[in-house]
Design a protein around this nucleic acid. Structure first.
Lengths: 360, 360
DNA sequence: GTTAGCACTCCTTTTGGTTGAGTGCTAACA
DNA sequence: TGTTAGCACTCAACCAAAAGGAGTGCTAAC
């Protein structure tokens, strides 16, 4: 259904205005603001039409109009213009780029922290998913006579370690030998590929102290399993929601913060639009940035919030998502622009630093 | 200054009542509630005295009385009775004890999460401080031709790792050899003890590829430094504050949540009463549980909150603090009892599992 | 098709009065 | 001298009514 130029302009104007003011916008305001020499009465008629079509809503009879989810959708897909970062924002961005790179988790967390400060919304970051769960390398490190450390580096550069109490006393030298055996036998394997045959192979190679093999295998599979199903979500800048009048009701704020505190459900909310193929093409914005508006989010708590996400990569494998959560009355244009910059930069760092792992 | 039995009883009654009701308590209520056959008028006189002495306050002329910080202090030190966990609470505690032990961070985080659920206040946990910063063991693990992992286990069982890009190509075998050298030379050392002589020793032992020594030393000191000054605080159950009317004002809630979000200042707030010796003995409760009430906390934001902390140990070295933060109108008796149980249990786990590291 | 005019709606804010819990003080009582 | 009944007073909290104002829909004229 096409809208006609004038209706588009009016809709655009209403939404843009509402995004900054958070107050229902009236016909008079639009009439003045919009350059067209139209009277408020004309605008009023058009707005009534837009409401009938579902793009606008009226909180009550004698109030101005407010965009509906459908209105925002249209705005995002058709009306919104690209936002250009201003000088100050460029400066901020630069300051982020000077952050040092260390462990991957830290890079990701720092990026999320920055994102929340930069956009003034709540930012999130899902931790790398280990889809295939292949082992890059395993290492055993003796700590003392009774315990050792298992270190496991996966395909995607994720690292985990776990301390294991030894069922029997073995020498450090033995642990080193054992470590070498494991490394040789398990490197490149996925969890599925570690079967009885493989275990037999390892057993033969280690010659003695078989008793410690099973606990080790146990721990390895546990670790991989952990990492694999770990729906870890890091959320930053939760208190930013206090900047927006939509959360000025204590109940609302509470509900939302409790939701954000429950990593489990945040993860769920973010994972939801996984049915990528079913989703209409128009819901995607350029550069793989995806916007989910209001009720498009499954969870009830999210019905008056929007989510803007981007993926991050190592090589060309999707590792996880970065994004922001804010009220549906979000400045989508700015949000997209900022997230775009940051995710690009993040990809750059990750690939410079971790790409090695995924070569070959 | 002694109070006399009756005043003590009345003060106790007022505070106990206020802790559950959060409403200013009036003379009439106390007259009825307290078994003594006194009229409200008498109570009124006594309460006026208590106010004059600074134990009680009046929000406004025609309201009941509310305890002051001084009142709470007196209550905590002199009046409060030990709280006995009831059946349901015992059950909960048991369920916590079944949690599996894995990496130390996780144990600590889980304990904090549990603590917040158990007490219904906000819980915190400071990460292990590495006071001496001695190296337990160092291990280098080749990842690929261009990089390796440095793993460092400290005295207290804290583990860190960092990936290092290699300035030159070296064989995995070399890295192993190098690893053995480092382990031999550095185990048990503190950062201060790694001096030029030591470095020379290592250099001699490694024979070739000296170029990679310095980056490694660099990283080691960086890691130790990181760990040492890392004022990491983990906060759990922030949204619990919504259960208490003192935060039912949006501004208050916001202020407090923003404070909790800023790990830096939380750390500061918790570290403050470090001048242990100066502190009057009475501020300490039995079993090393420390209570800081209202304005006793340095930071402004904390002026209407109280903090209850305990230390946790490995061996008999203090590793960090666990505790809870709540309104000054906190149920101190319950809070102390619960924290006591949990910190004891935590110590048990930590010592069973990590004590090895600190033997010898 | 556009617009001026006007009655109408309904939220928001203000105002003022009422209620009730609780106090301090005084005077009488044991 | 300590305790108590009585009473005037204070002040937050609640409620209802009134005023204000932004914005609409509709009608009639341009």
């Amino acid at each position: 259904m096409d809208l006609g130029e004038r209706k588009r302009q009016i809709l655009n104007s209403v939404i843009s205005e509402y995004i900054v003011s958070a107050e229902p916008v009236g016909s008079r305001h639009i009439a003045k603001n919009l350059g067209l020499g139209l009277s408020s009465a004309t605008i009023r008629n058009e707005m009534a039409d837009l409401e009938e079509m579902g793009y606008l809503e009226q909180p009550h009879t004698s109030a101005g109009r407010v965009p509906s989810d459908k209105g925002y959708r249209f705005y995002v897909n058709e009306l919104m213009s690209d936002y250009e970062l201003n000088m100050k924002e460029m400066e901020m961005l630069k300051s982020m780029m000077q952050l040092s790179v260390g462990q991957m988790d830290k890079v990701l967390k720092t990026a999320a922290d920055f994102l929340s400060q930069f956009t003034n919304y709540t930012a999130f970051m899902t931790s790398p998913e280990m889809k295939q769960g292949a082992i890059k390398t395993v290492e055993l490190v003796p700590i003392d006579s009774g315990s050792m450390l298992i270190i496991l580096v996966t395909n995607e550069g994720v690292m985990r370690n776990k301390r294991v109490l030894l069922p029997i006393q073995v020498s450090p030298e033995f642990i080193h030998r054992f470590s070498d055996v494991l490394k040789e036998k398990l490197s490149g394997m996925t969890l599925e590929e570690i079967n009885l045959l493989k275990i037999q192979e390892i057993k033969e190679a280690m010659q003695e102290h078989f008793e410690i093999l099973f606990p080790v295998i146990d721990f390895i599979s546990e670790i991989i399993d952990d990492v694999r199903k770990e729906t870890d979500v890091y959320v930053s800048g939760t208190t930013n929601i206090f900047n927006y009048p939509e959360y000025s009701d204590l109940g609302k704020a509470r509900e939302f913060l409790e939701f954000l505190d429950d990593k489990q459900s945040v993860a769920q909310a973010l994972m939801e639009p996984k049915k990528e193929e079913e989703e209409p093409e128009e819901n995607k914005s350029k550069n793989k940035i995806r916007i989910t508006i209001g009720k498009e989010n499954g969870l009830d708590v999210m019905h008056s919030s929007s989510v803007v996400t981007a993926n991050y990569y190592v090589g060309d494998r999707v590792m996880g998502k970065v994004g922001i959560i804010g009220p549906t009355r979000m400045d989508y244009s700015k949000a997209v622009a900022k997230l775009d910059r940051i995710s690009n930069y993040l990809n750059k760092i990750l690939n410079e630093f971790y790409y090695e792992d995924n070569k070959e």
